[in-house]
Every structure is written in structure tokens, then in C-alpha cells.
């Protein structure tokens, strides 16, 4: 979509998230209350179909459009699987399918497909207990399994989101098509999706901590006037800036390079970077807000706890760091700068 259309969509979505994803909604999800109305409205706005072609009933946006929306969703801790469903639907569409309504998620792991039967187990599947279907890529085949075909054990994430362990035991698939992406690539795209959500969470954490420092009065003046606080928040800004810059650069590279292989190195580097700095972002923001930010009452933990979970989802900094490090070590020191300056794995 053109820039004007995207900006308009983001503005509308931003207003909607501000109104509808308030503290109570996010906290209720943690208590196990599925926000059916919120999901219905998100579907009515077409958001889960943002990157699905118009002739399949979608909005017709690009991967980059979807990722921009997900940064915004991260900024609002949207407590439903918008990201997971939007990426699932994109992949279903690209595999020749037509996405059905209802929340979906990606179950990516060591799975086996024989004929139309899927078997295997995947741990820490986001929103596993509330979705209506699972999207799986095995070799170059994409399959969709209805929730009724899987056994799900609830293992809520430490951010209180309904993650779970999903087992398929000769499960019947409701859709099967030639996948536009490999299983490894689907995992990369999911890592990119999380990086953009982390960028959004970073946006919100910085704004929250900075606003708080202007409001909070101690020793007779706002704590924002203390140099110690100013320097902490400046450091926080630098960590958030790195998160944003890496996620945005990877999004650009993935979009421009094509769904199948665009920005492979950039995505790995971005997820490594975003995961790496999650710790400092959480640590500084909490320190700057004192006991207030440590309460369940305050919203800061909606974002810091998600960062702590998201940094592990779809590859931590250890996982992506190892991929990058192994490739660069194999290529040797003379290829280091050539690879880095071209945002590529060295060859």
C-alpha cells in the first residue's frame, strides 16, 4: 500500500489500540479471559489480513506494511495473537490458500508430515490455548491443522500470555499447499515479527519512563531534573534506538529482498540485537520508576515482561548469535567487513 494509505491505517489502528487495549483488558487476558469482542473488532478492521492479497479477501498490504502494524501492536501490548495470525495468514495466502477467520498461530519445530497426517510436538507456542488453528511448515509444505486436531498443554508465558505445548498425533490437516517459504524461513519471519513488536514495546517503555520522570516529584522537584535520571533515560533511549533501528532495517531488507529469502542476515542480526538489549531496557526503565513500576498496578510490566518473553521467542540472542558467528567464522577474517557492509552472511 502507498505511504498515505499505510499512515492512515496505522493512525486508525493506533487510536483503536489506545481505546481498546487498556490495562484491564491486558490484565484479564493474563487471568485467562479471552477478549472476544476485541478480537472481533480487530477482524472487522481487517488487521489479521493486512498482508493477504485482495482477491483472497485481504487488505493487499506488503510484508513491510504488516511489520509496521506489528510494531504498533507491540507499543500497545495488544493481548491477542494479531502478529501470529497476520503472519500465518500471509503464509497461507502465499501457499495458495484462503485464510479463514479466527485467531491462528505458528507451530514451528521438529514435525513430521506423512500424507495428510501431521505428528510431533512443539513447545512454547504463542497463544496455543486460544487459537482456532495452527499453521505449520514442514520441508516445503504448509499445512493448517484445526485446534481440535491438536493436544494443547497450557504453559502460560511469563508475560501471562496463553502459550502452550502443542502435540500432533497423526493429526488431520484442513489445508495443505506448496509453501512459498521453507520451515527455516518461516522461523526467520517469526523472529522478524517479534523484533518489530520489541521495537514497539521499546517505544512505549521509553515514553512511559520519560513521562513518569516529569510527573514524579521528590526533594521538591520533578525527578527528570536530576542529572542521574537524565543520564539513565538517555542510556535507555540509546538501547531503544538500537532496537528500533535494527528491527526497521531488517524489515526493509526482508521486504525488498522478497518473502523467500530477503534480509536473512539482517533478521538474524536484528533479533540478536533486540534480544540482547531487552535486559538493559527493562533494567533501566524499572530503576527509573522505582517501586511504582514494580507493581502489578502499573502498566510498565506489560511491556518489560513481554520483552523478557519475546527475546526468547523464535530464537534468542544465543541462537541467532551462533548462526551469525558460525557463518562468519567459517568464512574467515578477510570476509568479515565484506559481509557486514553488505548486510549478508559471508560466502
Amino acid at each position: 500500500m502507498d505511504k498515505e494509505t499505510r499512515d492512515m491505517l496505522l493512525e486508525t489502528a493506533g487510536r483503536f489500540f489506545t481505546e481498546r487495549c487498556d490495562r484491564a483488558v491486558v490484565n484479564n487476558v493474563e487471568k485467562g479471559v479471552w477478549p472476544a469482542d476485541l478480537w472481533k473488532e480487530i477482524e472487522e478492521m481487517g488487521l489479521p489480513l493486512i498482508a493477504v492479497a485482495e482477491d483472497k479477501g485481504g487488505v493487499g498490504g506488503t510484508l513491510a506494511d504488516m511489520l509496521a502494524l506489528l510494531r504498533l501492536a507491540g507499543e500497545h501490548a495488544v493481548p491477542v495473537p494479531l502478529a501470529e495470525t497476520a503472519l500465518s495468514n500471509l503464509l497461507i495466502g502465499a501457499a495458495g490458500g484462503t485464510p479463514k477467520p479466527g485467531p491462528a498461530t505458528l507451530a514451528l519445530g521438529d514435525l513430521k508430515l506423512s500424507g495428510n497426517r501431521l505428528s510431533g510436538k512443539v513447545a512454547r507456542v504463542p497463544f496455543a490455548t486460544v487459537v482456532q488453528r495452527f499453521v505449520v511448515v514442514v520441508d516445503r509444505t504448509l499445512v493448517v491443522v484445526p485446534a481440535s486436531g491438536a493436544r494443547v498443554e497450557s504453559t502460560p508465558s511469563h508475560a501471562g500470555e496463553p502459550y502452550g505445548q502443542v502435540s500432533f498425533d497423526n493429526a488431520t490437516v484442513e489445508f495443505s499447499g506448496a509453501s512459498a517459504v521453507s520451515a527455516e524461513r518461516a522461523f526467520e519471519l517469526a523472529a522478524l515479527m517479534r523484533s518489530m513488536q520489541m521495537a514497539g514495546a521499546g517505544d512505549r517503555i521509553l515514553a512511559t519512563a520519560a513521562e513518569y520522570s516529569k510527573q514524579r516529584v521528590q526533594f521538591g522537584k520533578p525527578i527528570s531534573t536530576f542529572q542521574a535520571i537524565q543520564h539513565m533515560l538517555a542510556e535507555l533511549a540509546s538501547c531503544v534506538a538500537a532496537t528500533i533501528a535494527s528491527a526497521e532495517a531488517a524489515s526493509r531488507d526482508a521486504d525488498e529482498g522478497g518473502l523467500e529469502a530477503g534480509g536473512r542476515f539482517s533478521i538474524a542480526a536484528a533479533k540478536s540485537q533486540c534480544s540482547d538489549f531487552a535486559h538493559r531496557i527493562a533494567a533501566i526503565s524499572h530503576q527509573s520508576m522505582g517501586a511504582m513500576g514494580f507493581t502489578h498496578e502499573h502498566i510498565l510490566h506489560h511491556y518489560t515482561r513481554r520483552l523478557w518473553v519475546w527475546r526468547r521467542d523464535f530464537g534468542s540472542e544465543s541462537f541467532w548469535g551462533e548462526k551469525i558467528g558460525a557463518a562468519y567464522a567459517k568464512a574467515g577474517p578477510d570476509m568479515l567487513w565484506e559481509g557486514l557492509s553488505a548486510s549478508r552472511y559471508p560466502t
Binding site: A242, A245, S246, A249, F265, S266, A268, A269, A270, S272, Q273, D276, E317, S318, F319, W320, G321, E322, K323, I324, G325, A326, Y328, A329, L336, L340, S343
Partner: peptide, 13 residues
């Protein structure tokens, strides 16, 4: 490899 890769990712960023 993981530590090397994280350093490379920071520099790339």
C-alpha cells in the same frame, strides 16, 4: 560462535 555473532550483530546495528 554465539558471542562472536552477538558482537557482529551489535556492530551491524
Amino acid at each position: 560462535a554465539s558471542i562472536l555473532g552477538r558482537l557482529i550483530a551489535r556492530l551491524w546495528t
